[in-house]
Deep mutational scan, measured.
Amino acid sequence: KNAAQIVDEALNQGITLFVADNRLQYETSRDNIPEELLNEWKYYRQDLIDFLQQLD
């Protein structure tokens, strides 16, 4: 998997990933985040941060 796929997957589930103060953050109206997504975000944290910062 790559960062773009993970960001896309999150968006499809109503979750927006973004970077604030060099930390990976998310916004969602969901009550909870599936644990497998959280684990994936932790595992790919630096890739996601790098990818999202390139988009800014």
Rank of each mutant, 00 (worst) to 15 (best):
residue 17 L to I: 06
residue 44 Y to I: 03
residue 30 R to C: 06
residue 23 R to F: 10
residue 4 A to C: 06
residue 28 T to N: 04
residue 35 E to N: 10
residue 56 D to C: 08
residue 17 L to Q: 01
residue 29 S to T: 14
residue 4 A to S: 10
residue 17 L to R: 00
residue 10 A to H: 01
residue 3 A to H: 02
residue 9 E to C: 04
residue 41 W to L: 08
residue 45 R to F: 10
residue 13 Q to P: 01
residue 3 A to W: 05
residue 51 F to S: 01
residue 38 L to M: 11
residue 34 P to D: 07
residue 28 T to P: 13
residue 27 E to S: 15
residue 35 E to C: 07
residue 26 Y to W: 15
residue 6 I to S: 01
residue 34 P to K: 05
residue 6 I to H: 01
residue 29 S to M: 12
residue 53 Q to S: 15
residue 30 R to L: 13
residue 5 Q to G: 05
residue 18 F to K: 07
residue 32 N to S: 14
residue 32 N to D: 14
residue 9 E to P: 00
residue 45 R to P: 00
residue 43 Y to T: 13
residue 50 D to Y: 11
residue 24 L to I: 07
residue 51 F to K: 02
residue 3 A to F: 04
residue 11 L to W: 11
residue 19 V to E: 04
residue 49 I to Q: 03
residue 5 Q to P: 01
residue 23 R to C: 10
residue 11 L to Y: 12
residue 11 L to P: 01
residue 55 L to W: 10
residue 26 Y to A: 04
residue 35 E to L: 11
residue 53 Q to N: 13
residue 15 I to R: 00
residue 53 Q to C: 09
residue 49 I to G: 00
residue 19 V to Y: 14
residue 22 N to Y: 07
residue 26 Y to D: 00
residue 20 A to K: 15
residue 26 Y to I: 06
residue 4 A to Q: 14
residue 17 L to N: 01
residue 24 L to C: 03
residue 28 T to S: 11
residue 37 L to W: 08
residue 1 K to T: 04
residue 14 G to F: 05
residue 50 D to L: 12
residue 12 N to C: 07
residue 7 V to G: 00
residue 31 D to W: 06
residue 29 S to R: 11
residue 8 D to E: 15
residue 15 I to F: 09
residue 22 N to D: 12
residue 31 D to F: 08
residue 52 L to S: 01
residue 10 A to I: 03
residue 4 A to T: 06
residue 19 V to M: 06
residue 12 N to M: 14
residue 2 N to F: 09
residue 18 F to R: 05
residue 46 Q to D: 13
residue 29 S to E: 15
residue 30 R to W: 08
residue 52 L to M: 04
residue 48 L to G: 00
residue 20 A to D: 10
residue 44 Y to H: 08
residue 17 L to D: 02
residue 42 K to D: 15
residue 37 L to D: 01
residue 47 D to Q: 14
residue 21 D to N: 11
residue 45 R to A: 15
residue 41 W to V: 05
residue 47 D to L: 11
residue 10 A to D: 01
residue 30 R to G: 08
residue 32 N to C: 09
residue 50 D to K: 11
residue 15 I to Q: 00
residue 46 Q to A: 12
residue 36 E to Y: 13
residue 20 A to L: 12
residue 24 L to W: 01
residue 13 Q to H: 13
residue 29 S to L: 10
residue 10 A to V: 02
residue 21 D to H: 07
residue 21 D to E: 08
residue 27 E to W: 15
residue 29 S to Q: 12
residue 2 N to H: 12
residue 30 R to Q: 10
